[in-house]
Design a protein around this nucleic acid. Structure first.
Length: 760
DNA sequence: GATCGATGATTTTTT
DNA sequence: ATCATCGATC
């Protein structure tokens, strides 16, 4: 019997709701996951078998968490095993019924990189100018069609403009090419599952009655296709339990439709509706700020979160000179928080775009603060990892032309573009999967010529030996090691890029480790399963907690998580809200961006910092920015504002041994902040903080030179490492700093010539 | 077929 | 500013 006593009345009502459609509108931090897991326990308690429960989550991480939490409630053996993302569940169903869709069971899953490469091939085959019809545009168009369940033929019929006509042509060819490679893309995982259920009544009945309860988390982020899938799966019993928050819908660009939630009762008549409005996460001031901001959205169901917790600290709203200063301030905040007794793992830095992480990372690294970037340059995106995965993919699926193109000459086998083109043409003409041409050296010789044909055949023979090994049951980690050895990958990396080879080999080792971990966890899983996991498990699914490291991630990645301290950087117009979000429908775009801001704010439990910079580099040159309009929507009395203004300026010509504390400005009305004084009005650049940031590469010479050093300061030298400042002599350019280095003894350093960085 | 250098796009968010 | 892609040259 699940424990209902610790739930509040609204939560309890939702958990014990009768069968039939249920919608739970769950505000941020209102115990949504708890309700979902307890509901599952409640369902199981009523005599439903674990195998009869299907639950969809938004990320694999959420799926894992839910599995663990349900297992805690009902015991290890009783946990449902159909808990997953729409994509992984789709893949699971498709594997069993691949034959009904003209796919073979070992179909590959193409991620966005594979997709881009395939599209590139398609465009060049169709002789379409890549500059006129860019890959991103094609992807958006194709994805939009797929998400509305529009087939290439229908798309072609419906075209009204020339541009649409071309896109439809690309869509048609792309789909054909995917099939030729025996592959599906992310959208197909759902689209083809829908087709399977629509076109095969028996299969639909099988799944619709096999699962007696369907649960969906983050319902506000489902798209049209996912709704169709959900409807099909509930067609027999109608037992749908959906949880979501319309105010946290931030995936509109990916086809997510808040309407699925706003019009839920129309789609599922007889719905029981519940609202969770008590927030257990954030302190009062943070929550009030979030409520005030989101109230400006028109398209919402409307709710007001409240909390029992006290007001807590004020929000710190700070404007800094530029993104570098902002990053320096992040370092400072981390140190201040540490003094307040908080572990670094309690702090998370959020940003709108991945590109912003670079500067923050640099600053944290220089300050030697342990940190972990979640997302951005994902592990699986690294070239060496992708190369090796392509080898494995090709081993599993000899029709995978994208992977073939990727690895056939990597390392160099003297097989160039011309030969590869002929090879693919040969495969198409004879309708043989490209890898299977190993059986037909005659065709290779005929179509590619003698010499090239032999080189290609030699490679295909090697590929075939791996294929055989995998077929004979060689475990994935061993197979991977065999491939790495067979192609002398380490030697290749060293020859190719000596500087980065060591680091890349570490990544390779990490991949091998991952393969071993997979092998153990899956009890000898197949190559197929391994590849599926790497294709569907994103980096953000591997967030580790309590590592004592500051975490950095995009707001999108942070959804569903909570942190004691949140530092939201880049609170600037054009960045948050992002310019491009307002291109299509400015109103809708702004509302989605506001929801994004809302998500960021509601991640914070104890303290929230909202930072902005008054200028930021864009394509190498500085551009002035304005504070985000969302900051102005936060009531003044909730914030403590710090901003730059001319009062901070030092008179021209004075040395900037700035130990003077930065004056705290009296509160100004939010949203009417005076523009910051620009650097070009003053000769020595104004410093925003008492302590200057460490000099970054490319930082103005004069600033680097006048960087003040003081006794007892921790500094870092390019070759001597970290050291302690013993004495500072002279002024300006002539300053001499005496530093004690633990490993190199006492040195006299002229910061003017030898770079010496303060370590904050 | 490979290598070097110039050129141009790139920055929204992710399964 | 940085990276990838393309073209000219060997």
């Amino acid at each position: 019997m699940p424990d209902l006593t610790s739930l509040n009345p609204a939560q309890r009502d939702a958990v014990t709701a009768p069968d039939g459609p249920v919608l739970v509108v769950a505000g941020a931090g209102s115990g949504k996951t708890r309700v979902l897991t307890t509901r599952i326990a409640h369902i199981l308690d009523s005599g439903v078998y674990p195998s009869e429960v299907l639950a969809f989550t938004f990320t694999n991480r959420a799926a894992k968490e839910m599995k663990v939490r349900v297992a805690n409630e009902v015991g290890e053996g009783n946990a449902p095993f159909w808990i997953g993302t729409f994509h992984s569940t789709g893949a699971r169903i498709l594997r069993t019924h691949a034959d009904k869709l003209g796919l073979s069971r070992d179909f590959a899953i193409y991620d966005s990189d594979d997709q881009k490469r395939l599209l590139k091939n398609v465009l060049s085959d169709l002789n379409i100018d890549i500059k006129q019809f860019g890959i991103p545009g094609c992807r958006t168009a194709i994805s939009a069609w797929k998400n509305q369940d529009i087939a290439p033929e229908t798309a072609t019929q419906r075209t009204t403009t020339y541009i649409e006509e071309v896109y439809a042509k690309i869509y048609t060819a792309y789909r054909k090419a995917l099939r030729q490679c025996n592959a599906v893309d992310f959208d197909d995982l759902i689209l083809e599952t829908v087709h399977l259920l629509e076109d095969h009544a028996a299969v639909r009945r099988e799944y619709a009655s096999k699962f007696r309860h369907v649960l969906v988390d983050e319902f506000q982020d489902t798209n049209e296709l996912q709704l169709i899938l959900i409807k099909a799966l509930c067609s027999e019993h109608g037992n749908l339990f959906a949880v979501g928050d319309d105010d946290q819908s931030i995936y509109g660009w990916r086809g997510a439709r808040v309407e699925n939630m706003l019009q839920f009762e129309d789609y599922f008549p007889g719905t029981h509706l519940f609202r969770l409005e008590q927030n257990y996460r954030s302190m009062g001031n943070i929550l009030d700020a979030a409520n005030a901001v989101i109230a400006n959205n028109k398209r919402r169901k409307g709710k007001n979160l409240w909390t029992d917790a006290g007001k807590g600290d004020l929000l710190s709203v700070e404007q800094h000179l530029d993104a570098e200063d902002e990053a320096a301030r992040v370092v400072e905040i981390v140190q201040e928080e540490k003094h307040k007794g908080l572990d670094r793992g309690a702090i998370t830095v959020l940003y709108r775009t991945n590109a912003q992480s670079r500067l923050l990372e640099d600053a944290l690294r220089r300050a030697r603060i342990a940190h972990q970037v979640v997302g951005s340059v994902q592990f699986y995106e690294r070239r060496e990892i992708r190369d090796l995965l392509a080898y494995l993919k090709l081993t599993a699926n000899p029709a995978d032309e994208v992977s073939m193109q990727r690895v056939i000459n990597q390392p160099k086998r003297k097989i160039g573009a011309t030969t590869v083109g002929r090879l693919l043409e040969c495969a198409h003409n004879h309708e043989i999967a490209v890898g299977n041409l190993v059986e037909r050296p005659d065709l290779l010789q005929m179509d590619l010529g003698n010499a090239a044909g032999k080189r290609v055949h030699a490679f295909l023979t090697q590929l075939n030996s791996w294929r055989r090994a995998a077929y004979d049951g060689m475990p994935v980690p061993e197979l991977l090691q065999k491939i790495i050895a067979d192609i002398s990958y380490e030697t290749f990396l060293h020859a190719d890029e000596p500087d980065t080879a060591a680091g890349r080999m570490e990544n390779v080792a990490e991949l091998v480790n991952g393969a071993f971990a997979f092998h153990e966890a899956s009890d000898g899983g197949t190559l197929q399963q391994f590849l599926e996991q790497t294709a569907l498990v994103a980096d953000q699914d591997t967030i580790q907690d309590g590592e004592g490291a500051v975490r950095l991630m995009t707001i999108h990645t942070a959804k569903g998580l909570e942190f004691p301290v949140v530092v939201l950087t880049g609170c600037e117009d054009e960045l948050l809200p992002h310019v491009t979000a307002m291109n299509e429908d400015a109103e809708a775009g702004a509302e989605e961006e506001r929801r994004l801001f809302y998500v960021a704010v509601t991640r914070a439990m104890k303290r929230l910092y909202l930072l902005s910079a008054s200028r930021r580099r864009k394509f190498g040159t500085y551009e002035d920015t304005l504070p985000s309009r969302f900051l102005g929507e936060i009531p003044d009395e909730l914030c403590e504002t710090r901003e730059l203004d001319s009062g901070w300026q030092q008179p021209v010509g004075r040395t900037l041994f700035g130990d003077a504390p930065a004056p705290r400005d009296p509160r100004k009305p939010a949203g009417h902040r005076p523009p910051l004084q620009r650097r070009d009005t003053y000769t020595p650049p104004p410093r925003s903080r008492a302590k200057p940031r460490p000099a970054a590469a490319g930082w103005d010479q004069d600033v680097a030179q006048s960087a003040p050093f003081y006794e007892g300061q921790l500094v870092r030298h390019g070759s001597f490492g970290a050291g302690l400042v013993i004495r500072v002599e002279g002024v300006g350019d002539d300053v001499t700093v005496t530093v004690d280095f633990p490993d190199h003894g006492r040195k006299h350093i002229l910061p003017r010539f030898a770079p010496l960085f303060p370590v904050d």
